Amino acid sequence: MYAIIKCGGKQYKVSEGDMIDIDYTGKAAKESLEITDVLAVNDGELKCGDAISSAKVEAVVVLDGTGANRDRKVLIYKKRRRKDSKLKKGFRRSFTKIRITKIAA
């Protein structure tokens, strides 16, 4: 059984026991999290739309997004040729690592 959920503007395919990194939620470790934005559920046959309007996915926070729990750095580099103009920036996304405990369809 798996579900497709939407969290933080991204879509994830999850099943029970999976660990995924989502955008920072502000929840502490070992706190429960309920995701109600479920797009599809497959338990032998694929269901979506009004058939799963009451579906939800329950998860537990494993790591919160503070301190060292950040993704690798993404570098942004802009250079304008012949203008002696360049810009280098870096960005590190904070994330929350969760474990999927239950899919209720």
Rank of each mutant, 00 (worst) to 15 (best):
K27H: 10
D21G: 10
N42D: 02
T25D: 03
G90N: 05
A68N: 15
S54G: 12
L87E: 06
S53H: 13
R93L: 05
K79V: 02
T25C: 05
Y24F: 15
K89P: 03
V41I: 13
K27R: 13
Y12F: 12
T66S: 10
V14D: 00
R93Y: 14
E31L: 06
R70V: 07
A29K: 15
S54D: 11
R80L: 15
V57N: 06
K88A: 09
V74L: 05
S15D: 06
S94T: 08
S94K: 10
S85R: 03
K30G: 03
I76A: 07
V41A: 01
K47F: 10
D50V: 12
V62H: 00
M19I: 12
D50Q: 11
K89N: 04
E58L: 14
S94Q: 11
T96M: 07
L46F: 07
A68R: 13
V61Q: 02
S85I: 08
V61A: 03
R80W: 15
E34C: 12
K88T: 07
S15A: 01
K86F: 15
G26P: 03
D21Y: 15
N42I: 09
K88V: 09
G65Y: 08
G26H: 03
E45V: 14
D84P: 00
V38N: 02
E58Q: 15
D50A: 09
S32K: 13
F91G: 00
I35S: 00
T96P: 02
K56E: 01
F91L: 04
K56D: 01
I52Q: 02
K27W: 01
D84Q: 12
V38A: 12
E45L: 15
R80Q: 13
K30N: 15
Y12V: 08
R93I: 09
A59I: 12
V60L: 14
V41H: 02
K79L: 05
G90S: 05
K88L: 11
K83Y: 06
S94A: 04
D71F: 13
Y77C: 00
A40K: 13
S32Q: 10
E58W: 06
S32T: 11
V57A: 02
K78R: 03
Y77H: 05
D64P: 04
K13I: 11
A55R: 08
D37L: 06
G67V: 09
D71R: 10
K47P: 00
T66F: 11
L87V: 10
L46D: 00
S32L: 10
L63K: 14
C48V: 15
D84S: 11
D23I: 11
Y77M: 00
K97G: 00
L63W: 11
D21N: 12
K89D: 05
I52H: 07
T36L: 11
K56R: 14
C48E: 14
A51I: 04
G17Y: 13
K30R: 14
L46R: 12
G49R: 04
E58M: 15
D37A: 09
G49N: 05
D43L: 12
S15Q: 07
G65M: 10
I52K: 06
T25N: 02
N69E: 12
A51F: 14
V61H: 09
E31W: 00
V61W: 06
K88D: 06
T25E: 01
K47A: 04
G90E: 00
A29G: 08
S32F: 14
D37T: 14
D71H: 10
D84E: 10
K47L: 05
D43N: 15
A28I: 07
S54M: 12
L33T: 02
L46T: 08
G26M: 01
